[in-house]
Structures are given as C-alpha cells and as structure tokens.
Design a protein around this nucleic acid. Sequence first.
DNA 1: GACCCGTGGAA
DNA 2: TTTCCAAGGGT
Length: 288
Amino acid sequence: MPDLASPLIAWYRENARDLPWRRDGFGAWGTLVSEFMLQQTPVSRVVPRLEEWLARWPTPADLAAAPPADAVRLWANLGYPRRALWLHRAATQIRDRHDGVVPRDVDALLALTGIGDYTARAVAVFAYGDRHPVVDTNTRRVLARAVDGRSQPGPPAKSDLAAMAAILPADDEDAAVVNAAAMELGAIVCTARAPRCEACPLAAVCAWRAAGYPDTGDDRRKQARYEGSDRQARGAILKALRDAEGHPVPADEVASEWPDAAQRDRAVDSLIADGLVEVTDGALHLPR
DNA sequence: GACCCGTGGAA
DNA sequence: TTTCCAAGGGT
C-alpha cells in the first residue's frame, strides 16, 4: 500500500482550519463536548454553541450539577436532543466514577453514555495524544476512495478501525495528525459531492482516481423523509418546551404544536421514554 | 444488522 | 421544490 500518512501530514500542516478545539490547551472536557456536538451536526453550527456551553459549564462537575433541562435548553437547535441528555449523563458519570476528570482509557470512555467507537477514540487521541484509529464519516470516504477505489464508502463496519490503523505511522503525535488530517481532507477536499481532486494531496496515490473515478454505487441506507415524520413531531413539541423556559406546558397547548393526535401521542410517549420530557399535573416539561 | 433519532444549509 | 448531507450512537 502506498504511503498515505506523509502527504496527509504535510497537507494538514498547511491547510487545517482554525477551529476552537484545535487550540493549544483546549482541554479534554472541551474536546468531549465538541465531539458530542459534532455527532451529525456541521462544524459551522457547533462553534457558537460550544463556546456558550463551556462558558456556562467549564467542567464535567459543573454540568452534572445542573438540571438536565438546562442542558437540553442550551442545546437549542443543534438537533438530536438526546445527545444533550446523554452528555449530561456522561458528565455525571465522569464526576462519580472518575473524580470529575475525563478518562483517557478508551474502554472507560466507551462505558460513558453517548460515547461510541468514534467519540471514545477521538477524545483519547485529540485530547490525550494516544495512538488509536479515529474513524468518522469523512475518514471512511477518504479510505474508500484512496485505498479501495470506490466512489462512496459502504455502511460503517468494525473493519473500518483496522483500515485506518493500517495507515497510521508509529509515532503517537504523527498518528494523531494523520487521524485529524483524514477527517479534514474528507471535510474540505474529498467531499461527498463534487470532490476537489485537483487540490488533493493523495491524488497521486488515489486508487479511485487511478481507476478513472468509477461510480461504484452507494449501499448506504438512505435517510428517511423528515417532513411529516415522527422526528419532526418530536422536534416541534420539544421546541415548545424549550421555549417555555421552564414553565410546564399544558397538554392542550402541546396539542396545537402538532395537530395529528395519534402521531402527537406517539411522539410524546417516545420523548418520555427517552427522558426528554416529564409530566407533572397534566403539563409537560423538560427533565428536572 | 435494521431502524430510530433533529435541524438547517447547499445543490 | 426536493434531495442530500453533516466529526454517530443507542436499542
């Protein structure tokens, strides 16, 4: 296999975006919060919320001491509000199990609510400098093209970690840069649509380019339609609760947020099951 | 492994 | 207007 690490490192030194979590001394807690927010949400929308969040809760213990409702409210429109709840739970677990210090061990990180293969290794690598493969959607696309000669990656698989590990250099710091560089390249050059191959540091060694950019198909699962979905109903109801700023919302007012009664009931039930909504005296509110 | 979970910008 | 896509993870 050609050397991908060297061109990635050189390219990253010159082209990496200046992002908050890349500042010196950003800290493991900041890294953890940023990674939660970046799960399926674009960088541009995360940056302002992240600054706000860390100003209010500078440590895991600070967040753990706040009611979950505050976390859900400050999450605002970042999407997938369960992540706000999970981040609050993770902060509580960090306080209770790890003396308030974000763990460094991957297995300890994986044991926290809302942290999976990607986030656990991202924290261990970017916050602590350890050597692990970090694989996100950008990295999977870069590897699918440069190594496998495919136009799009397949569905996420356990083998993704081994594929990334195979291109990591031995040195810890270099490995961390290669992890970050693969993600960055996928984000700004080797993009899903209209990749900028003329600006790619891997062009000379890219298997997909060498093969003449074949369309190898796309076997990823398509995202379900959002308009009219249960997700949209949940979103509308939860937005109303966030906007109520702590005041419980009576059931009849919730009804006006989503007219379809059956779908509304289903949405409320699922929000309660997720712990995002509680009911007191017939009125809905965020978890206290 | 399949399916579920928000939101908004870009093409 | 519709579709695609975004530093994933839990069940």
